[in-house]
């Protein structure tokens, strides 16, 4: 009753469409460059780990992964911790300018990163944060904080207000109520919001590349530069690409049961 005729075939075809380009990348990462350029093979005939070995032994490569993870984690922590109280306020209270503030936040989620690339470069150079993970983490707040507020507001609104009132009658102070009662109640919502912050910070490149030069360069930027300098080392490029997919795949696996409600931002 829910579904449509031929749904299995449609689903299978769509999943193949999604997986085929990824398979091709994985396939190429295990081939030698000679095999990539000379013949068209559907699977590696002379499988090799040389590209992965190079990435894991060369510091200029693997430090990129560490840098990326560093600012992504920082950004997720900042975003969630400032967004939580705000989400509670938007969900429970009416205050001067609340609607305008909410819209303003939302509009920042939509602002094009290209607009901010240059001013951010000036700003973070001026305050001495340029080329640190903090610069990228703070810059990514511009789209992750509004998103986190938006998602968490949906989840907080799902908590009945009677729970707040009972807690306050029982003599809970506001911070204690917040940490002991509210946070555990919306734990899955916090997980979903953290997932989205992780996701959007992890996939963004333009700002991350503009705000770093040497010591905090993300892996995505290292990929683009090394490849253009060394000619076309397709195997190495493919291996680096595969390694950037893995953290995302791991995170998805952990939140797979919340994906559906999470993508609706807690407001279906």
């Amino acid at each position: 009753m829910h579904s449509i005729p031929g749904r299995r075939a449609i689903m299978a075809m769509f999943l193949i469409f999604l997986l085929l380009p990824i398979y091709w990348l994985v396939n190429m990462s295990f081939k030698t460059n000679a095999e990539i350029v000379s013949t068209m093979t559907l699977w590696p005939h002379t499988p090799t780990l040389q590209h992965y070995r190079r990435i894991f032994t060369d510091e200029s490569w693997y430090s990129g992964y560490i840098n990326s993870l560093e600012y992504v984690v920082l950004n997720t922590i900042i975003s969630i911790s400032v967004a939580l109280p705000a989400a509670y306020a938007f969900s429970r209270y009416r205050f001067l300018g609340d609607k305008h503030l909410f819209f303003w936040l939302l509009s920042n989620r939509m602002a094009p990163a290209a607009v901010y690339a240059l001013p951010f470069f000036n700003l973070y150079s001026a305050i001495g944060l340029f080329d640190t993970p903090w610069a990228v983490a703070l810059a990514h707040c511009i789209f992750n904080v509004p998103l986190a507020v938006w998602i968490l507001e949906g989840f907080v609104s799902g908590v009945p207000r009677e729970i707040d009132e009972t807690a306050f009658l029982d003599g809970y102070s506001f911070p204690r109520f917040f940490l002991r009662i509210l946070v555990p109640l919306i734990a899955s919502g916090i997980g979903v919001a953290a997932f989205f912050c992780f996701m959007f910070s992890w996939v963004e490149l333009l700002l991350a590349r503009t705000l770093t030069s040497v010591s905090a360069k993300p892996i995505a930027a290292i990929m683009t530069r090394t490849v253009s300098a060394a000619g076309m080392d397709w195997g190495l490029l493919a291996a680096a690409g595969v390694l950037t997919i893995i953290p995302g795949a791991l995170v998805i696996w952990f939140v797979r049961n919340y994906i559906a409600s999470g993508f609706a931002l807690g407001r279906v």
Partner: peptide, 16 residues
């Protein structure tokens, strides 16, 4: 399984 595969492209860095 379907959900995980569907979400996979969303978590790949844009330049990748």
């Amino acid at each position: 399984a379907c959900l995980v595969i569907l979400a996979l492209p969303l978590l790949i860095p844009w330049n990748v």
